[in-house]
Design a protein around this nucleic acid. Structure first.
Lengths: 202, 202
DNA sequence: TCCGATGTTTGAACACGTTCAAAAATGGGT
DNA sequence: ACCCATTTTTGAACGTGTTCAAACATCGGA
């Protein structure tokens, strides 16, 4: 991880990793099936750290926008040192067959932790949702976060300022849209979204 | 392109391409800066073909949902033979620094064609939008299409049936949501979306 | 103490994308 | 016809991720 952080994904060779670990190249491949697998721990590490750093927001705030916004912003804070590195290996995560894909079985652990965080965001908030929507909302919020991460990867601005602006804009929108589901006509649309998500999962 | 289609991206070597073209390996690199650039023509080719195949839908249909749905479904039809190939090289397109990224300068031509198609989708439809939204809507529809493509890449179902189901679900939703902007409270949210998009672009 | 099986380590070897200096071809000006 | 600058072609060479057969280590049981 140190080598990756310092030199980026591509510039860090398996030979350098093996040497830094004091083993031969072949041994590195005995413990890690590929260079991608080397980086698998990064996900688990990051999602666990995020889970921790988000605890006090979830303990103190009660407004949905504050809770969700806090969760997203702290992810950006946490991931900031790894932004350049992430940009260099993200290509692998976008391959559907890669174990680094956020939808892969290998990423299930990190994914579950992340969805659980969003379940907490909802559970402790003042937002009231229809039952059908309430059930699917954590996964939808996680999907929005994946969209944010996609934007973040492309974001070359200082301190990822643009991604932060995105979050400050999107969170109130999600908040408002969610509350709009009180209107029957909007709720009908929301129910269709839920039905679609469910049919695509099955 | 034939070699890519038959063997996939990774399995097609630059040496094989050079040999099939009857030139040396070095000459291949004289005309194409990298393996990724070899595939650049695929975008232009595909978006041009899409523009053509979509003409009669845009000439006959007037309902927004029919127009937009037709445009998306014909893209799936068109891209179907390349699905496996696309999955193998898509990883490169997800790299923000890759010329294959849909946001890259090198992809600008194909991107402009695609956005123009969506402008036509709107222009000839019965959908009435507020001026601010009308201006940004083509790009938003294109973004939705990029989302569909992302889903499509991950879609291993027969004939990409799940992506087709997604389109059949999403299009009426977009249609309904767009028409809901007649309600002042929904229109306010839509205006915030437009403002956000504009601030992020600048 | 020795044996065999299992677990671990090693570095050479492979195929790949890419680079580069040198060679070959081209073409316009005299 | 000749020259020279420019364009084009070539294949060897480099560094990479990955594989693999062989060597070595470990350890429980006879």
């Amino acid at each position: 991880m140190r080598l990756f952080r310092e030199g980026g994904y591509d510039a860090t060779t398996m030979r350098a990793v093996a040497e830094a670990a004091g083993v031969s190249l072949g041994s590195a491949y005995y413990y890690f099936a590929s260079k991608e697998h080397l980086v698998q721990g990064f996900y688990d590490q990051l999602s666990a750290a995020h889970h921790e750093v988000v605890a006090d927001v979830l303990a103190t705030e009660t407004g949905f926008a504050e809770r969700y916004g806090g969760v997203l912003e702290r992810w950006i804070d946490l991931a900031e040192p790894y932004h350049d590195f992430a940009a260099t290996f993200f290509r692998n995560a976008a391959d559907p067959r890669s174990p680094l894909s956020p939808f892969s079985p290998e990423s299930a652990a990190a994914r579950e932790v992340s969805i659980a965080v969003h379940r907490e965001v909802l559970a402790g908030s003042d937002l009231k949702l229809a039952p059908a929507l309430r059930e699917e909302m954590p996964e939808l919020l996680w999907l929005v976060q994946m969209g944010m991460v996609l934007f973040w990867v492309y974001d070359a601005s200082e301190g990822q300022a643009r991604t932060r602006a995105l979050v400050r804009g999107v969170v109130p929108l999600v908040d408002r849209l969610a509350r709009l589901t009180r209107l029957p006509v909007v709720r009908a649309a929301a129910n269709d979204v839920v039905a679609l998500v469910r049919s695509l999962r099955g």
